[in-house]
Design a protein around this nucleic acid. Structure first.
Lengths: 237, 237
DNA sequence: CGCATCATTGAACAAAATCAAGCGAGGTGG
DNA sequence: CCACCTCGCTTGATTTTGTTCAATGATGCG
């Protein structure tokens, strides 16, 4: 929960009382294994999911089995707000590795939204940044080459990890297979593999297992045409 | 403004008092010519833009001139809420045809968000549907073929026009050049042209000028793998 | 009439997908 | 402790989809 509060404060300063209110929000914690849905398309859960540890994604399956991952979610993300306000979920939310999840009852969030204007606004910001990330993915997949796309994604995840203090200097764990990366980038697995090799060959990154090390942050940003604006973080990454 | 209220009521029933509150929101109207920015990337406007008549899009330009359109906006859309809560805009908003726009001061919306919980929630829904549309564009561009993509987009715009009562039965005006469609679909102009010809050849649609006529709604939906869920409209299209 | 913008066409080309194997590390059971 | 199996990564060859380049029609408007 602290991570989440920290993330909100990334956008808005909160008073001590407001922080207390957030800390008193009830939730139950559960450990979910890898590759498990937290919510599936069509469901109407009664709780929102707060990622405490691990790594999740939102995705949609097409009839013939193609899958598009539409976002990654890292600790501190409340990734389910849409279930609070809208009807049946139009996509699925699943873990990519074993993940510790907090389930926050809708009523608790509803109360806060209705009675604490400043927290309401902080949640608005959180949600609008989410939205900005989707937009950026549209740009990324729509216009950029495989090489640019991959570089951009690596930059985004790094920036987001860094913002919640979960990245080592210029390195982080991206707990995702190349097939999953492919689904996120709208590319084939084979092509992702070749693209990552190119990025490595150009000395921009190293991969050891699932640990990404960024050797040349400026060049990687340039390669991915990455501009952290859209993450709307207070501290520039 | 009536269209906007109607759109909000698509998600939530509002009381007479709430509708009055919305109707009393001050705004200034302006006629904006085609191909003009309403707000440009990096700006921090003091108003939100409500489309009254016309057709707009949000887009981002890359350094080398490539452009990705990330969404279309039709009358009744309040397309700028992000400027209310977040810092400098991370993309641009521009007209595609001559458009009548209402400029609503941020303070007015701020007041409403803070003091009218039910309208706040209606705005949340409006914004979350926006978000769902972005996600669906990610899926569309990431996984679907040119043919499927184009079909899907035609379905989406039709459904949205219909929801605000701006579509004739199975036909509507899509006031957009093929080059603009290309920027929205992440395809080249040439390929969009050929794809539209295919859709016409298959008897799914007719184009006369910029008027789209859908001959076989079920088939077009099937061709685009379109499922209106994500628009979260009360009345199924 | 003449210009500008948009739609259309054909041919050559490039990026990425697909198909089909092989490799390597980690985990399991005998 | 080793054989084996699985999953994920890597590689090469081929095919597909969509791009680019370069014209040529159409249409509308001053």
């Amino acid at each position: 929960m602290d991570l989440f509060i920290r993330k909100l404060q990334n956008f808005t300063a909160l008073s001590a009382a407001e922080i207390e209110t957030l800390k008193s929000v009830p939730y139950t914690t559960r450990d979910i294994p890898a590759d498990t849905d937290l919510t599936s398309e069509g469901e109407r859960p009664a709780t929102c999911r707060l990622i405490l540890e691990g790594f999740c994604c939102r995705y949609q399956l097409l009839a013939d089995g193609r899958r598009q991952i539409m976002s990654f979610h890292i600790p501190g993300d409340l990734c389910d707000l849409t279930t609070l306000f809208l009807g049946p979920l139009d996509h699925s939310l699943g873990t990519l590795v074993a993940t510790k999840v907090g389930f926050v009852p809708h009523e608790a969030i509803n109360d806060i939204v209705d009675t604490y204007p400043r927290i309401n606004r902080a949640l608005w910001r959180h949600s609008l940044v989410d939205s900005a990330i989707f937009r950026q993915w549209v740009v990324n997949i729509g216009q950029r080459s495989a090489y640019e796309r991959a570089a951009h994604l690596l930059c985004e995840v790094y920036s987001r990890f860094e913002a919640v203090g979960l990245a080592a200097p210029h390195s982080y764990e991206l707990p995702v297979t190349q097939a999953e990366l492919a689904d996120a980038l709208g590319l084939s697995t084979v092509h992702v593999n070749r693209t990552l090799q190119e990025l490595r060959g150009d000395g921009l990154i190293t991969l050891r297992g699932r640990f990404v090390t960024i050797h040349d942050w400026e060049s990687l940003k340039r390669a991915g045409d990455f501009n952290a604006n859209y993450l709307h973080q207070l501290a520039a990454a």
